[in-house]
Structures are given as C-alpha cells and as structure tokens.
Design a protein around this nucleic acid. Sequence first.
DNA 1: AAGCGGTCTGTGACGAAGTCACCGCCGAAT
DNA 2: ATTCGGCGGTGACTTCGTCACAGACCGCTT
Lengths: 220, 220
Amino acid sequence: MSNLDWLKQFPALATMPEGERAPLAGGAMAMNAPAGTTVYAPGEPCNAFILVIDGAVRVYQLDADGNEIVLYRLGPGSICILTTLALLASDAYSAFAVTETPVHAMALPAATFNDLMARSAQFRSFVFGAQAARMADLMAVIQNVAFASIESRLAARLLTLAGGGGELSITHQQLAAEIGSAREVVSRQLKAFERRGWVSLGRGRVELRNAAPLRAAAGH
Amino acid sequence: MSNLDWLKQFPALATMPEGERAPLAGGAMAMNAPAGTTVYAPGEPCNAFILVIDGAVRVYQLDADGNEIVLYRLGPGSICILTTLALLASDAYSAFAVTETPVHAMALPAATFNDLMARSAQFRSFVFGAQAARMADLMAVIQNVAFASIESRLAARLLTLAGGGGELSITHQQLAAEIGSAREVVSRQLKAFERRGWVSLGRGRVELRNAAPLRAAAGH
DNA sequence: AAGCGGTCTGTGACGAAGTCACCGCCGAAT
DNA sequence: ATTCGGCGGTGACTTCGTCACAGACCGCTT
C-alpha cells in the first residue's frame, strides 16, 4: 500500500472523506523521474493520471519546422491535463510534456482514476479546477502571441522565470521558445534591455539588474 | 417534464441507462436564443451547463485595445466549456461566447449537472471529450498565430467558413477578428487572392472562385 | 598549451506583417 | 437629396521573423 502522506499537501484532496480516498490508497503509484523525462508526447499511449508532487514539468508545442512555444508549466499539486484528457478522450495533441527538474509524482491507473471520478465530488472539482486553470493559461498565451509586443512578452517571461531571484541560466534560443519567437529577435531585445541597464548578459545567463522597468514594460 | 427527443441526436448521451438519465429528464430546460445573444461574458455569473442542440456559438477573446480573435465555434452536440468550467471552478475567463445564429439549447442547472457527473460514466466521458476537443482547438489557434503566415491562415479560414458553399457574407474586419490580425492586412491579402482569381470581392462579401489553390495555400 | 568541434551570440539585409493616418465609397436613414 | 456611419483602399513607417554568416566561448583532446 502506498504512503499517502503527500496528500496532506493538497487541501483539495486531503479533506476527501475516508471512503472516497480508498481507491487512491489502493491504486496510487509513486513515480520519480529525472529532469528531461518525457511525460507526454503525441502518439504515445498513455494510461495513467499523473499528479505532480514536487518538481516542474514544461508543456510546449513543436511544429514540423522546429518552431517551439511553451504553453504552461506544472508545479506541485498540478495534474497533467494532457495525459488526463488523452486518457479519457483518446484525443491526440501536438504537444509535449517534459520534466525540467527531477519530478516526484503520483500516478493513478485509468481504473482508479475513473473510480475516484465516480465516487468523489471533491476529486471531480479538483480535476475540473485544473482543467479550468490550463484553459486560462492557453487563452493567455493566445492573447500574448496574437497582440502583445516582443518587448512586453520577453520582459514578462524573464520576471516569471526568475521568480524573485535575479539570475537565470537560459540561452536566447530557449527564451525564444518560451515566448514563441526567434532567437535573433530575443538577442536583439535582450541587448536593448542591457543597454538600458535592466539586465546584464553572459553566455547562457541573464541577470536581472533592475526589475522595476521590466515590470513596467511587461505591463503593456 | 421536458421532452427528451433531442437526446436522440447525441449517441454519447442517448445510450445512457434509464436511471442515469433521470436527472436529465427532471432538470433539463429548453432554451431558445436569437442570434447575437451573449452566452458567456467575463464577470457574469453563470449557473447552468449548456448543450447546443441547434445553431452556432462563436467564442472569442477581446482585449483592452479592442483586439479580437476567434477561439472556436460550438455546433450541435457541443457543450459550452467556458460556462461549464466557470460553473465548476468559478474561474474567470477573458473570453466571450455569442450566438451567431438562432440557437436552440438545453440547460442543466448546476445541481442537475453535478448529479449526472456523479451518476454516469458516459456523461463524464462526454464532458471530458468536449474538454479535450476545445483544448485541441486552442492549441491549434496558438500554432497558427505564432507560426503560420497570414496567407495560409486567411485561406484556411475562408475555406472553413464557406464550408462547401462558395459565398461568404463577411466584412474584412470580421475576417481579421477570425484570425487575430488587422483589417488592412486582410484587405491586402484578399486583394492578392482576387488578383490570382481565387476569390471575387464585394462589399461585405467574399466569393470563393477557385478553392484548389486556396487549399494549397492553407496547407503551409 | 594548442587545437578543435559544437554551441552560443552578434549583425546586416531583407521580406512579411502590424500600425497610423487618411481617403473615397456605398447604403440606409432622415 | 443629403447626411452619416460603416466599409474598403492606400502609402508610409515600424516591428518582427528569416536568412546568411561571422566571431566568441566552452569543454575536450592531443
């Protein structure tokens, strides 16, 4: 039987009545994956519902020409909608999900997942909440790529990636993939930021020197 | 009691066991809305699950500067994910859903919807299938706005909007909103199509004259 | 220490797309 | 018939993506 201590981290699930948690206790399997593990890829069969306990998963799209754009990230407490929907609706997506850090997760086999969905209103609302959040993420991405300037998209992304810290280990190419643009465009924009004293640059490194104007630029 | 004849149109629901259909029979309410009715708008409270029986609903995003982009359309048999998720997760979206034609729909109050979700695996999988389809729609939009040329996006959209017929009643401004571009850009591209003999243009009208090259242009 | 291959970054030139300002035109309402 | 608001056309300019290429940096080998 699995240890369900990790459940305590997730209020939405932890308060589920004893009886409803039974399938969880019986069917949950712990997973540990190193950074760089593929969680979902188009065409791959997928047969489990996945809940991230610790670590980060990057979900992105990749087209035939090699163009890449990051859709969203999953952190602790998030479930992988892609695998869930592929599991339930057997629909194929053109997206990839890859771990960025070592990831600790719980996997529920399809049968266990279905059982929980049938039993627990709380679990259903947890799953729907996740759906809603991902949907909102995608809609935000659409707004950005369709109507926002490169300057604001890049500034915003630098801030969220830095997340408080001031140092990023990332290449221009990766940043371009983050915002769905081209490497040259990102290089030039970063240079502009550097000239203004907002960041300082190194090979594979971006240091935020002055977050305030970046925040302002991210706004519009 | 509502007439459930409409259910026959939807195999996914029609084959639900008698008992599971009970809440549906008891709680479903028929709705008829003229074209132009707002189904979902940010900030509006929404308290019903909506299933389209006949007609079309356009779901689009609108930002502060008036920029507009169509996300997807709902036809017969589709459910409005936006209202469903807003209902379940009380999350606010920046999107609008508006009827384009007179729409005939069924509405389930939240309680009835929750009851069905609890009882029927078939209903759950119907709802999840719809989620998955909308998610795929959004991801396709992202691919297009991020990486596809205006020529291919416009050609593709003209073909799907025409849907077999050769005549469209639509303005350049509306077409721009369809693909998330600017009116001038669409005007110029349409002129180019006209010079090549692919379409002929009139005020508020686009006639497809030669679909084959349009299909080719839509491809890449 | 020197060389080497691969990755990362910088740059100029160009084309595609978005923006701005302004125009004339059509058509419905008065 | 005139007016007025929505529609479409156009030129000038800016921003962004693409292409081609050069140089810099890094880790590795010799």
